[in-house]
């Protein structure tokens, strides 16, 4: 285990340890364009270390694009351009020379659809560890058990680690993916509607898990489910389309957003009056 932390440290560029006042993630005027089409404009947001931030709002207003900027998955989209200022613990995330591989090990991502690799459960979990340079078997096995326990999957699968991951239920697959992301001890875990492709019971299991992960890492979750945002998040940011471009209309604590919204759009949205 210590071994693994040492490995994770290797990938952390030396930065000044931010004080409690400095947010872990700091976005100022972030805009995203796909070719000539601007999808996200002028987003400013602070995310504190150890918090759960929910990005809410209707489909197609740039929440996922914003999430993609945080671990540079947007690089995969052809002709995608990001401007503005985006920092993780002081490091410039939009620097074109940034080592995105190292970044993605610090900032994990959970997809809407569970995407275990079509290998065995063990192989799914072994891969990122081996990639990170954990050569020896015992620390890998220990890390796998630790992360499977963290997502509550250990008791369900410890006796069939060599079975196909694809044979697990949807909820189990999603928890496996979370465990897989946790293996490298990311500072931030991004979740893109992690429960929306699951049945309600599996969804509730995954949702319960999010609360318990708070101690390990900072979580940014995109969700359409307002009740879910209320249950799991400390802070919320409401994304909305303005003139065809997504932006944040209001952000604050869950209490502010749901009980004392400043914007009428927010008030109407949380009431369920507009979609």
């Amino acid at each position: 285990m210590t071994n693994l932390h040492a490995v994770a440290e290797l990938h952390r560029p030396p930065v000044d340890e931010p004080g409690p006042a400095v947010p872990l993630i700091r976005a100022r005027g972030v805009s995203v364009s796909y070719g000539a089409r601007r999808v996200l404009g002028d987003v400013s947001l602070d995310i504190a270390r150890g918090s759960v931030t929910a990005l809410i709002g209707p489909s197609g207003c740039g929440k996922t694009s914003f999430l993609g900027c945080l671990n540079r998955m947007v690089d995969l989209i052809p002709r995608c351009r990001v401007t503005g200022e985006l920092r993780l613990a002081g490091a410039d995330l939009l620097d074109p020379t940034l080592d995105v591989v190292a970044l993605r090990r610090r900032v994990g991502l959970i997809f809407q659809r569970p995407n275990p690799f079509p290998f065995s459960i063990r192989h799914n979990l072994d891969l990122p560890l081996r990639e990170a340079g954990v050569r020896r078997k015992e620390p890998r096995a220990a890390a796998i058990e630790r992360c499977l326990r963290a997502v509550g999957l250990w008791d369900e699968v410890h006796d069939r680690l060599d079975h196909a991951a694809g044979a697990l239920s949807g909820g189990q697959q999603q928890r496996l993916c979370i465990a897989r992301a946790l293996l490298l001890d990311p500072e931030v875990l991004l979740m893109d509607e992690p429960c929306s492709a699951l049945d309600p019971i599996s969804g509730a299991t995954v949702e319960a898990l999010i609360g318990s992960l708070k101690e390990r890492c900072t979580i940014v979750i995109v969700t359409h489910n307002l009740a879910q945002a209320r249950r799991v998040a400390d802070r919320c940011a409401l994304f909305w389309l303005r003139d065809g471009i997504g932006t944040i209309v209001e952000q604050g604590t869950v209490g502010q957003i749901f009980h004392a919204p400043k914007s009428e759009i927010t008030a109407a949205y949380v009431r369920g009056a507009v979609a």
Binding site: M73, L76, F111, F117, L127, P128, E131
Partner: peptide, 15 residues
Amino acid sequence: VPDGCRRGALALGMP
């Protein structure tokens, strides 16, 4: 090969 596998691998910080 599903795109999920591809993006999943990259999101895990695999070169």
